[in-house]
Nucleic acid binder design. Structure first.
Lengths: 194, 194, 194, 194
DNA sequence: CATGAATGAGGATTCATTCAT
DNA sequence: TATGAATGAATCCTCATTCAT
């Protein structure tokens, strides 16, 4: 009854409501645990008086989770893309990517937390993997250009995302400024050619 | 109802039952999602015919989770300690710590998965933090000895644990051999003095 | 909110809408189960984009059910009446009634199915009973004329309707031709004088 | 977790509880509509303070419905079988079958009502069909012995069950004595050879 | 100690209905 | 009039927990 990723079929009002609910869901997941992010909690944060409305706008919890996941990926993707367009070398692009991540944690505190927590519950999947693939490809191109040393690009991509996720998990306890600088330093040391 | 982590108050039988349940819980959390790790699932894996017995031995789900968390930390701690005792330099100790982690993933596949998944649900907390503190202290001593470059030891400890956790999260999809070697390499590059 | 079965108070448009909804409801009940015949399903089949319109035109689900029931009875009544007008004897009228029923199943597949399914949910009641009474009266007159044997006319009317309903319930699985012939035969044997 | 039609795996207590719930369900379906026979209504009639217990003993609503259906069929089957064992001719057996049905309505008022109402919601299915098949077979054997006239046995079986169901539907409004006698008479006339 | 039955709160979801536009 | 968004009650179901035995 409800388009899974509506493009033009959705009313303006409906899009607004969906966005409102998705936003509330992001805040809820970031604040509470994923398991505790019930429709009731989301409804409260969305200012709704009934959980029925969430079911009215989303075919089920899975569609909501997927919509939230896609929304975060979209916002995050745009955010990062804007800050990577100027990169000349692969190393510079990688640096910009890392800084964009840290900056995103500051400007969108809840988004990355929710992203990490929802990763294993989302069924869209290709989002996170495409992130990984893009990063791996960047690393590979850097290797081809001789900027980076020889390493397994998939493993290195996994490492970089793991570092990012590690900061996200402790974002509220650490100094993002210091973390960001050190992140750039560590990744540079990890990747640069001998 | 029951002492939270009684030492001498528990009978042998009781300790055995608790251990049996904790073991089953570890397997359950590793196999299923945390949210899906219900008492029923744990009871099945523990060979128990009633979830009531879990409630009988543990004051509540939280105590079970905390007990599981502490058990994993204890096993992991002993495992790592055995493999780090011989380290001379801080760098060597760090290397042994990393290798011990990777080896632990191989010998105790469920423990680390459960550890990572339970981290945000455990209320004991100091366990993970004590790990973190020990690692930070190791890094600091390395810095004092001039083995490591200057960096924020807390951030670096966070990074190292993040790398470890990243591997754990994908342990079933990656080549642990390659990951372990690259992990050592990356951490060495990240920490060594100029 | 709305007159229960207004005659002159309803505008033409309103009557048309009610008829449209009633028709869709008949199809819905025949196609789905009664319990599954929700306003949403009915609205879909009526080409309506909102279930609110159904509530607007009918005071509640009960009025809709009753309206549907009455509509079916009216259509069915006219259909049968047309085919019974020529009957001379009571036996002949009864035969025509039975044949009209079978013919109705063919020409209005949904109506009788819905009729049977709605019977126990309709609160108008007198509809089905009036049918029953008319049939009983026909049987009684046949008895008075000596065409039928002695039997309890209410019970026999109940039997005849039960046979009809039995065929309706399996209309899609049986050969209506054979059933019709056998129905006439059985009822004739059941009623005729010794 | 719960056997669908437990034989020996069920505790005595559990069997008793299941029987209690099944009994309450039969009463509920007979009293209310099928659609209104919610777990809550059933729980009330079973003297339970929680609908959760029903879910505890039955894997889902479908299993409960099927269990109820099977229970009724079992009770009904035994009841009828006891009263048909003495039948010599097919006609006599048929007569005993009809009388057993009417007697069952008297001694088990709710069972047949529930049976008819649950028929289209039960997924076990073969129960009702096997009833039909047995009846058709009885009719066929009667035809072979020359006791019955020539007719489509499936249609006639359908008719006989329809007559039975018709009485069930109005059991509370009619005189079962009269109905039973007339039922036997009608079926005899419908089936006997010329 | 251990069992399994029982509880009640909380989960997502569906539904008829209401209401502002 | 008609729409679609919103509501809240009710449904089935799962869960941790309690309790008699």
């Amino acid at each position: 009854m409800r388009a899974k990723s509506g493009s033009g079929e959705l009313t303006v009002t409906e899009q607004a409501r969906r966005a409102q609910i998705v936003g509330a869901a992001i805040r809820t997941v970031a604040e509470l645990d994923y398991a505790s992010a019930s429709f009731k909690q989301i409804a409260v944060r969305a200012g709704l008086s009934s959980t029925g409305l969430i079911s009215y706008h989303f075919a089920g919890k899975q569609e909501l989770v997927d919509s939230v996941f896609e929304e975060i990926l979209a916002v995050f993707g745009r955010f990062v893309l804007e800050r990577m367009s100027g990169g000349g070398t692969a190393a510079e692009e990688l640096r910009l990517f890392l800084l964009a991540n840290v900056e995103f944690m500051r400007s969108h505190p809840d988004h990355l937390v929710a992203l990490v927590r929802l990763r294993e519950h989302a069924t869209v999947g290709d989002g996170a993997d495409s992130d990984h693939r893009a990063l791996a490809e960047l690393l590979r191109s850097g290797q081809r250009r001789g900027e980076f040393r020889s390493f397994d690009v998939d493993v290195m991509a996994l490492f970089i995302m793991a570092l990012r996720n590690g900061i996200v998990a402790r974002a509220s306890e650490v100094d993002l400024e210091v973390c960001g600088d050190e992140l750039v330093e560590v990744v540079e040391r990890a990747t640069k050619g001998d």
